[in-house]
């Protein structure tokens, strides 16, 4: 399997069946190293399923997923996260009993060089590393203006802050590709504008590729350079926002045949 050097992720003829139901079929997606790609589609089109195939939560029944040129089908979710794919969830999944700080600390576990014995016996390097962990968490929280809530329980924050914390938590895993699952869901207009600013900031500051599932057209059209449209698990269109806006099959998928 070879992939173009510029692509961080490639789905090749990727598909998955649940029993007799084909959720996604023959999907071809290529994401460049600095792309900001949107994925839209009506409810049940298979968008989150695509995320779950990329992150190893589901195993594709057909095709391959190439991350940085390497087929990652069959790897466990934590291994894929370790390779450099970070994600957020459609229904926020922050660790409810942990603070904002600790939620992000979890993402740094995979970067630790000293594990069980150093932590239990508190050997000298342990303190060194804990200080480094603390510094990088504080640095991240500062970028996203979350320092004032870092000792609050994450799930007690306002909805928008929870979404933001989840993005920061995913970024803390130092991903090369960030998957955002409906980050604007449940946000008001002001929060959405703030979110768009945040996503641009993430892309510029961390220099990573972003794949975004979103229902809010203003957000998708506003920030994505390229958009993929899924319907019934099939890619029906791909292109820049203006082209997607005027694409007949997209309008048909969303509004029905007559509207088109």
């Amino acid at each position: 399997m070879n992939s173009a050097p510029g692509n961080i992720l490639e789905l090749k003829a990727c598909g998955i069946n649940f029993g007799g139901l084909t959720a996604v079929s023959a999907l071809e997606v290529a994401i460049g190293r600095r792309d900001l790609l949107g994925m839209i589609g009506p409810n049940g089109a298979g968008k989150t399923t695509v995320f779950n195939m990329i992150t190893g939560v589901y195993q594709p029944t057909k095709g391959s997923v190439l991350f940085d040129g390497r087929n990652i089908v069959g790897l466990k979710p934590y291994q894929i996260a370790g390779l450099g794919i970070g994600r957020t969830f459609q229904n926020i999944r922050l660790f409810p009993s942990l603070t904002v700080y600790e939620n992000i600390q979890v993402s740094l576990v995979k970067t630790l060089r000293h594990g069980f014995s150093h932590s239990t016996l508190q050997l000298p390097r342990f303190h060194e590393e804990e200080r480094a962990v603390r510094a990088s968490i504080v640095e991240l929280l500062e970028i996203f203006n979350l320092t004032h809530v870092m000792n609050e329980r994450a799930t007690s924050l306002p909805y928008g802050d929870q979404r933001r914390t989840e993005i920061v938590r995913a970024l803390a895993t130092k991903p090369q590709l960030l998957l955002l699952d409906e980050p604007a869901a449940g946000m008001n207009a002001t929060e959405k504008v703030e979110l768009m600013r945040l996503i641009r900031l993430v892309k510029e500051r961390f220099d990573i590729a972003i794949l975004l599932i979103e229902h809010d057209m203003k957000v998708v059209m506003g920030i994505c350079e390229r958009i993929i449209v899924l319907d019934y698990g099939i890619k029906i269109a791909e292109g820049p926002p203006e082209a997607i806006r005027n694409n007949l099959s997209v309008i048909e998928a969303y509004l029905g045949e007559q509207a088109a």
Partner: peptide, 13 residues
């Protein structure tokens, strides 16, 4: 303990 799926997605074995 809190959320196995999220833990795995953050790279926790």
């Amino acid at each position: 303990r809190d959320d196995e799926i999220a833990a795995q997605a953050m790279g926790i074995n």
